[in-house]
Write a protein that binds this DNA or RNA. Structure first.
Lengths: 242, 242
DNA sequence: GAGTGGTCTAGACCACGAA
DNA sequence: TCGTGGTCTAGACCACTCG
C-alpha cells in the first residue's frame, strides 16, 4: 500500500521540515552528492526530489553554490494549486465550519451541461456548501460531479471532504484542473447563502477537474466575498533563451 | 549564444505545434522511445521535455497508453505564471498600447521599503504605466525596481518591455516570483489613470520578483478593472499517497 | 506478450562559484 | 583547484494497457 518513491520521500521529508520551521529560510540543504549518499540513491533521483521542492517554492537552487530554503513559506498559508478545502483549512488552522445546503442527484441542465461538455439529461450530483470562518459565511462552493463517475454521495461526505472520498474510497485518480478567476455580480443565491455586506460583486473561481484519462468529471464554482478573497501564486520564470 | 538543451528544444518544438494547432487536442505524441530516436537522445532526456509539457498543461501522460495533447490551450489565452505584459499581449494578438506616466528614480519611502525589505532612503526606479486595450485603459501597472540592481532606465524601455531589457541587456537572471491577488478599494490614482466605470473596487495583483540569488529586486502592483480581470491557472494534483 | 510510461542507476562532462 | 548544480547517457526493472 505504501508508495516507496525515493524522490517523493525526499520531497516530503524536506517539505515538512521547511513547513514546520525546522529548516529556516536561508538554510543550505546538503549537496546533491551528500543527499544521494544519505538516501542511498543516485544523484538523478535526488535531483528529482529537489526539483519538486524548487517548483513548489520551497527552495532555490544555485549553480556552484547549493540549494537554499526560501522565505516564501512564511506567507504561503493561502494557496494556489489543486487542493481541497479541507486540506487548506487544516493548514490554516482557523476555526472553520462547512454548511451543506444541497446534496442531490439531478439532470445537468443546459448551463452545466455546457460546462461539463455533456448532454443536458445526463445525471450529475449537485452540492452546495458554505464555508464559515470566524463565524461568517465567506465562501459559497457549488459543485457538479458526473454521476456516471461518482455513483453515490451523501450529505455526510459533502460535510467532510469529497476529495478524500473520491481518492480513498472510490480510488479515482484526480490528475489536473483548470481554474479561472474573475469578478462577477452577486446573485440572489449569494445573498441568501453567504454573509455579504454591501458589496454587489463576488470573486468567482471556476474549476474544471479532470481524471487521469482526461475525463472532465467535476465543475466547481467557488464564490468568495470580495474583502476576504486572496489567492497566492508561486511562479518560476521559464528560461527565454532563444 | 544559442542554448542547446535537448529537452528544451523538444519542449519548445511541441509547445509551438500545440499552440498553433498543428497538433490538435487529443492527438497522441510519439512514444518516448520514438522521440529518443528522432532527437538522438536518451529516454530520460526526452522525459524531461515531456514532463515540462505536462506541467504547463500542454499534454497528459498516461501509463501504458502514451502522451496526449490537452484541450487546455484553447482557453489558455489569459495567463498564469511569470510572464511579462509584452509577452502576454503578443500571445493575445489584441490591439494594445502602453501609456507611460512616470519613469523616475526616487527614494523608496516607507511603504515601498517595507515591500522590498530595504531602507526607506534606498533609491528605486518608479514606473507607472497604463495598458490600453480596445481603446480603454484597463490595467494600471506600478513597478518599483532596486536602483542598485537596475542602474539605468528610460521611458522608451518602459514603453517597450522592462523584462526584455533586464534579461537581454543587463543579463539579469529572473528566477521566481510570488503573486498575491486580492480586491481593494480604487484609489484616486486609479480613477485618474484608468477608465473605471462606477466600480469602487479594483483587482490588485502584487508581485514580488526575485533574481537567481534570491535578491528581491522588484515590487509590482498591477491594478485591474473588475469587469476585465481574468486569471487562469493550471494545476496538477500532487499524489496524496499515504 | 508487446508496447507504454514511471522509477532508478552509475557513470560522464560541463559551467559556475569560492577559496 | 575543488565542490556545486545542470545536462545527458545506456541500460535496467516495474506497472499498466491493449489486443
Amino acid at each position: 500500500m505504501m508508495k516507496n518513491n525515493i524522490f517523493m520521500s525526499l520531497y516530503k521529508d524536506y517539505a515538512e521540515r521547511i513547513d514546520d520551521g525546522t529548516l529556516p529560510p536561508g538554510s543550505k540543504l546538503p549537496s546533491e552528492n551528500e543527499l544521494a549518499a544519505t538516501y542511498g540513491a543516485s544523484r538523478e533521483t535526488v535531483r528529482k526530489g529537489l526539483n519538486l521542492l524548487a517548483q513548489n517554492g520551497y527552495i532555490n537552487k544555485v549553480k556552484g553554490k547549493g540549494s537554499f530554503v526560501l522565505a516564501t513559506g512564511r506567507l504561503k498559508f493561502p494557496i494556489s494549486g489543486l487542493i481541497s478545502y479541507k486540506e487548506l483549512s487544516e493548514r490554516l488552522g482557523k476555526p472553520s465550519r462547512t454548511l451543506v445546503y444541497t446534496t442531490e442527484r439531478v439532470p445537468a441542465g443546459d448551463t452545466i451541461a455546457k460546462e461539463l461538455q455533456i448532454e443536458p439529461e445526463e445525471p450529475v450530483w449537485k452540492v452546495i456548501r458554505a464555508r464559515e470562518i470566524d463565524g461568517e459565511r465567506i465562501i459559497l462552493d457549488i459543485d457538479y460531479l458526473l454521476a456516471e463517475v461518482v455513483p453515490h454521495l451523501t450529505e455526510d461526505i459533502a460535510a467532510d471532504s469529497i476529495y478524500h472520498y473520491l481518492e480513498q474510497e472510490l480510488q479515482l485518480k484526480i490528475s489536473y484542473a483548470e481554474k479561472v478567476i474573475s469578478v462577477e455580480q452577486a446573485t440572489e443565491q449569494d445573498y441568501r447563502c453567504m454573509d455579504l455586506g454591501e458589496d454587489k460583486h463576488v470573486v468567482v473561481v471556476r474549476g474544471y477537474v479532470h481524471l487521469e484519462d482526461t475525463t472532465l468529471f467535476q465543475y466547481t464554482e467557488s464564490r468568495h466575498r470580495l474583502d476576504k478573497f486572496q489567492f497566492v501564486d508561486f511562479a518560476r520564470r521559464i528560461s527565454r533563451e532563444n
